[in-house]
Design a protein around this nucleic acid. Structure first.
Length: 464
RNA sequence: GCCCUCAUCGUCUAACGGUUAGGACAGUAGAUUCUCAUUCUAUAAAUCGGAGUUCGAUUCUCCGUGAGGGCACCA
């Protein structure tokens, strides 16, 4: 068994999207599963569309998702690792020239109109192509048979010469892709289904170089969800960009877990599982053949499940990075212990980190908003004003040392009036948070302290 | 138009040719907690159509249909 060498070969011509991430992930998983090598190769031959910004985004996204590469440019873009470089196609011009010459020398390439064409072998004839509205020259030739690890045997006729070097001197994708895979000794090409039709070209190129092609494995595409329309997921679709999840403070391991399930499963009912288990179980024959529609709701759910089980320290650290980026810096500047206490109250209640701001706002300012609808609702029920007055009177003598003592205090008050805890809860919550949602009211009282609790209760009474 | 690929609940997916076609997300209905969220319980929901092969097809074959991809001096 030869050593597994796989590569992920993005081009820095746009945002890093979920389809790219999944292709990268399947390559990475296969490398880690087999103990092979994962190569990151930058396909930046399209000088008109490349950008340094997008190149950096590739490094950042890969790193954030936890997909480390054994060979390729360094994550900071300075220098590189591995012995098969350079790993940026823009720096491999000499290698391409050399390989172009090989084809020129062995008669498999020729020049026409300033471009270099790859020559198919066989009897030639001309035919008018209705689709392209021009006459094309075709070659009578046997179909290429691709023994795909995921799709099985696929046959396709490749019966036209094609350009491998543009007249401006730059090589074309098919050519560089194959040359790089040869020189980097790539053993398995795992890529999107959209390349399946190209593969016959690639096989002919390998043949032209006299090299045995690698194993191919074409994974199904990620499609738009029904509400987004039809077709494959594109960079313009909502939820398609990795960057977006990073900015929304999704947990990368949740995102990785979710996308691993798009076209693959563990073989049992398990869905949420640590990356080590996915690595252990992942294999090419287990990959599905049909396209998977993207479901943002399931991803949200996965993220929530991961968030709930985060250790306190990691959650608080995540919350800190989130608040540090918010325009209102009050939370980020808050006392460490106070901040931590609040975040841990919020953790079991929120579905994503980016809800934290709104969810905990009232802890960090006295100028929090009162939700008008909630207010209307709460004030319409029972005699909230009387309850408020009673609370204001009772709070100064209550024991604020723990949730339990506060609960006892309110219950004592309630019992004295022949009422229940619930009769005070809603109006108290409205007064101190402005909402009808949040952690337990006793915890909020305790964290706010007697002073601020009293102030807020009084404030509502006055403004009411 | 030509070529390639695919086809199980709305969505992601299980099911050696023999199951009451299973799980998860999203629905719906209840229960629980001081609110909200979580959680729990219940519930509805699928084998694209037609031929064949077989004692028996979700599963194998063919034909339709539908969906996706490709057909560049883009990657």
């Amino acid at each position: 068994m030869t050593q597994v060498r796989v590569r992920f070969a993005p081009s820095p011509t746009g945002f890093f999207h979920i389809g790219s991430a999944r292709t990268a992930l399947f390559n990475w998983l296969y490398a880690r599963h087999t103990g092979g090598t994962f190569i990151l190769r930058i396909e930046d031959t399209d000088q008109a569309r490349n950008s340094e910004q997008f190149l950096q985004l590739i490094y950042d996204s890969m790193t954030w998702l936890g997909m480390d590469w054994d060979e390729g440019p360094n994550p900071n873009g300075v220098g590189e690792r591995g012995h098969f470089g350079p790993y940026r196609q823009s720096q491999r011009g000499d290698i391409y020239k050399q390989y172009k010459q090989k084809l020129l020398d062995n008669g498999r390439a020729y020049e026409k109109d300033g471009a270099i064409w790859f020559k198919m072998l066989g009897e030639r004839y001309k035919i008018f192509d209705e689709h392209r509205k021009k006459e094309v020259e075709k070659v009578k030739i046997d179909p290429v048979v691709i023994d795909d690890k995921i799709r099985g045997k696929v046959e396709r006729q490749e019966d036209e010469d094609f350009v491998i070097f543009r007249s401006d001197g730059n090589p074309i994708f098919h050519f560089v892709n194959v040359v790089d895979d040869i020189t980097m000794q790539v053993s398995h090409v795992i890529r999107g289904d959209d390349h399946l039709s190209n593969t016959s070209k690639h096989v002919r190129l390998y043949e032209g170089f006299g090299v045995t092609p690698p194993v191919f494995a074409h994974i199904p595409l990620i499609l738009k969800s029904p509400e987004m329309g039809t077709g494959k997921m594109s960079k313009r679709d909502k939820g398609a960009l990795i960057e977006e999840y990073q900015q929304r403070y999704f947990l990368p391991e949740a995102l990785v877990n979710y996308i691993s399930l798009l076209g693959w499963n563990a073989g049992d009912d398990r869905e949420k599982m640590p990356i080590a288990d996915i690595v252990k179980l992942f294999d090419l024959p287990g990959v599905n053949q049909s396209g998977a529609k993207f479901d943002g709701k399931k991803l949200n759910h996965m993220n929530m499940v991961y968030l709930l089980e985060q250790p306190a320290d990691r959650f608080v650290a995540l919350a800190k990075t989130y608040f540090a980026k918010q325009s209102n810096g009050a939370a980020a500047m808050a006392n460490e212990a106070y901040f931590r206490e609040i975040m841990l109250l919020a953790q079991p209640k929120i579905k994503s980190i980016d809800e934290l701001g709104a969810y905990t706002a009232y802890f960090f300012t006295e100028e929090f908003l009162i939700d008008a609808k909630v207010k209307e609702k709460v004030l319409a029920k029972g005699d909230p004003k009387a309850r408020l007055i009673e609370l204001i009177a009772a709070v100064p003598t209550m024991d604020f040392s723990s949730d339990a003592t506060i609960e006892a205090g309110i219950k004592t008050l309630a019992e004295g009036k022949g009422l229940g805890f619930g009769d005070y809860q809603a109006v108290a919550r409205l007064a101190v948070t402005g909402t009808n949602a949040g952690p337990s009211i006793t915890a909020i009282f305790r964290v706010l302290g007697k002073e601020r609790t009293s102030e807020r209760l009084k404030k509502l009474l006055v403004t009411d």
